[in-house]
Amino acid sequence: MSVAPLPAEHRVHGMGTALEAPVWPVITAAEAQDVLARFAQAGPFGGLNWHSPRPFSAAVLLDAGDETLFLKRHHRSVRTPAALAEEHAFMAHIGARGVVVPQVLRTPDGAGAIGHGEWTYELHRRAPGIDLYRERQSWTPFLASSHAFEAGAALARLHIAARDFTAPARGGHPLVASFTIVPANDPMAAAEAYIAGRPALASYLNGKRWRPELARLFATLGQGLAERLQGLPALWTHNDWHPSNLLWHPDGAVSAVMDFGLSTRTCALHDLATAIERTAISWLEPIERTGDCSAARAILTGYRSVLPLSPEEIAIIVRLLPLVHIEFALSEADYFAGVLSDKMQADLAWHDYLIGHAEWFMYLTGKEFLGQIEAAA
């Protein structure tokens, strides 16, 4: 991995609240101009106007003719053009059914992404709406309960649009929120298979007491969950539903949905539980984490304004919440241990994220949060 010089002023979101120097070099004007020339639908390069603070890739807004485009660059070990084609196909499908998503620009041969050296690039037209949350951390709450309600309603509309998308689940790409462990009759065996298929993750966990740690979480938080989940219809889902992945109308409604990098085949209740887990609990407060039950209820109420949810489905969401992050946390640990060779960040993904988030639901605050959601619903 080559690392170009970085502008001293550019910082990205870290695993906590502090901004950090980016791992991936920023996109330069010369680089953007060269990539833009590969996309026949793009106008002439006019300059860069914003660098994204998201940490897992490099991205910019740039001027091209009379429009603003979004250029995103991934390391090829994270996303290949073929891997991006999977999420672009999902975006095109739901976009044709009324969900507003960024338009993917194409090269003259029809490709929606290009590879160049160690990098993979994709280029989007900017979707309509106000980017209210673009500088905020991913795991921070909605600014208003009305936003949480509208986000829930928008998620339901996405699920309706996705019902007839029949692509299989994505492969073992880093940083994808798969759903194979928690629904399994034997989640420990499924975890073993998941880890064995990712050599860097297996090497990182070697010597750790990860088996008893995971077994404890499943025994305490997952009793009877697999049986409840197995009857649910599979569905391609967003899997990263938080405010900064949404654009907004001036009246507070959702105008567009962005960032389908974690999308794959899970189920609707997995997506709903993820939306609550990402936005209604103060994970970035290390001292005393709290849960905002009103935000969770607003998401569910918004969803139910479009699609019904039975009492049994609410109960499944409540029981899924403590474990819904498990596979993405493992994927993050794999990314840090394998792609970046960063043991410290891998430790944060394993201890603070995977174990710590699940354990929060074992304590009084987490139990009360779950109880209030179920009681209100």
Rank of each mutant, 00 (worst) to 15 (best):
G117M: 02
H74Y: 14
H88C: 05
D109K: 02
L62Y: 12
R125G: 15
R76T: 09
A89T: 07
H88S: 04
V99Y: 00
N49L: 12
L123Y: 11
D109R: 07
L105Q: 09
A96N: 03
H93T: 09
Q103K: 12
T80N: 00
G115M: 06
E87I: 04
W119E: 01
F70E: 00
T120V: 08
Y121D: 03
H124W: 12
A113I: 13
L105R: 06
L62G: 10
A113Q: 11
G95A: 00
F70C: 03
G112N: 09
R73Q: 07
A83D: 09
L105C: 14
L61C: 06
G112I: 06
G65T: 11
N49D: 14
R54H: 12
R79C: 01
T80K: 04
I114F: 00
L48D: 05
S77P: 02
L84R: 02
S57E: 11
E118L: 07
G46H: 06
L105D: 08
G115Q: 12
L61F: 13
R79F: 03
R73N: 09
G95R: 02
T80C: 04
G115L: 08
R54L: 10
G65N: 14
R125V: 12
L62Q: 08
L61K: 02
H116D: 10
Q103G: 08
E86Q: 13
E87H: 01
R126G: 04
W50E: 07
S77E: 15
L61R: 11
A83M: 10
H88D: 10
L123G: 15
G117Q: 03
R125F: 14
R54V: 05
G98R: 01
S57Q: 14
A96S: 14
E122K: 12
R73G: 07
R126F: 09
G65W: 11
L69M: 07
D109S: 14
A83Q: 13
L105I: 10
I94M: 04
A85H: 11
G117D: 03
E86S: 12
L48Q: 02
P108W: 00
A96T: 04
R125L: 14
K72I: 04
N49M: 15
A127H: 13
